[in-house]
Design a protein around this nucleic acid. Sequence first.
DNA 1: AGCGGACCCTATCACAGGTTAATGCGCAAC
DNA 2: GTTGCGCATTAACCTGTGATAGGGTCCGCT
Lengths: 244, 244
Amino acid sequence: MDKPLPCTLCTLRPLPGFKPAREGELAFIARRKVGQLRVRAGAGVISEGGADDRIYTLLAGWAFRYKSLPDGRRQILNILLPGDIIGLQAELLDAMAHGVEALTDVSLCVFARDMVWSVFRVHPALALDLTWLAAHEERLVDDAILSIGRRTALERVAALLVHLYKRAVASGLLDGGSVPFPLTQAHIADTLGLSVVHTNRTLQRLRRAGLADTAGGRLVLGDLRGLRRVAQYWEQPAPPRPLF
Amino acid sequence: MDKPLPCTLCTLRPLPGFKPAREGELAFIARRKVGQLRVRAGAGVISEGGADDRIYTLLAGWAFRYKSLPDGRRQILNILLPGDIIGLQAELLDAMAHGVEALTDVSLCVFARDMVWSVFRVHPALALDLTWLAAHEERLVDDAILSIGRRTALERVAALLVHLYKRAVASGLLDGGSVPFPLTQAHIADTLGLSVVHTNRTLQRLRRAGLADTAGGRLVLGDLRGLRRVAQYWEQPAPPRPLF
DNA sequence: AGCGGACCCTATCACAGGTTAATGCGCAAC
DNA sequence: GTTGCGCATTAACCTGTGATAGGGTCCGCT
């Protein structure tokens, strides 16, 4: 639990990727932020199947959603960046069907337990925003299925790198031509349904081709257009997103 | 366009899998049903990237959501059964990121264009139900990612069959120990990220093991428990779902 | 009856990607 | 400075799955 940042001073909201808050709604949200939580890199935020029914917003840092099979094989569903909501599914459905783990040290805004229902009751436009976020996350997952199911390893890795690069840039993380990249090769493998060894081979092909480099915890794209072509990745416009 | 069924006489709602409507809400929904649409097996309901912003509920028949790569490889994201909503993402995000195609002849309830927003404005509890459906669909997609990314072909096919069997039963389709099964092996392949040939091999392994048979457009599970074990599939409780 | 088209099935071959195991490197702990 | 650990890297080998090609059956159409 670290020093809470009041929502009125939110460092995320001014970013170009986020929609400005409407009249009165920011205050409404601020009133329901009950604290702030810090989680260390590698630690769990929500455990698979757990019944933690709090709602969080990722304020700073990276995390990921995952599911696993009984025998331990793990699949990462989705990478979470600042502004993403955590725990909405658990609130709506009854149990959490997936776990969430911090990739870097992470700060989370913690919201009151009745947050969701009160949003729906008193601020329909905000409720629509919440549903927008859910639909948006589903779209990401849809894209992931397409990758894992139908792209080759090389295409998958290329598509993931382009995708994460874009999102990191939108989160204001671009610095000197590169963005932070806290995923290990094991994370990439778990995201793309590959083995670690083959992920390594594939990253090297991209590196040697001058397309992308993930060394030193940072991601540099040497040739964005070329990477996109390799990935068969076509741009989707990204409208500003709501923030809680 | 066939003879519209009034929502008050809905054939789906009485099924045990669906939540009864609350006071006043059924009338509200009924008022916004503007028609009924019939789509032949194999025809498209919504085209990928299309801007059709209407909302449908699948009233009868099977359909599926899919995405494809520029070069034609196709991935099925999700099988749709009666009660599923179609077009919610297009309404919220701006374009439809996926297509929808009918698997059998299909009947759809067509809703007024302002349906979503009016639900949020005047019936918060219904709005929450809508979001519940979105979260529930995302859960299905999460499960699919886990399958495609981390299960072997045999496990994938087994898991899919168990899953569809369960859903078909919940839709009241069980008849004499089997349920209808309108997917061709090509559909299964596109759902699981496999080739048609390997899908065929795998189905036969299951058939010879006495676990499952998909012949003749019907699905018979010879040994549900055994199939679950093969699939590493653990049951999730299915609470009754809302219906529009 | 004959034809064509879906769909299912089988066999063979090739290769992408998995598995296992060992090495190296940087870095924190002591 | 040694030890240990996490992560990236390589190599050798193996296998699950894909690609291609063909045959069979059923069914609707003319």
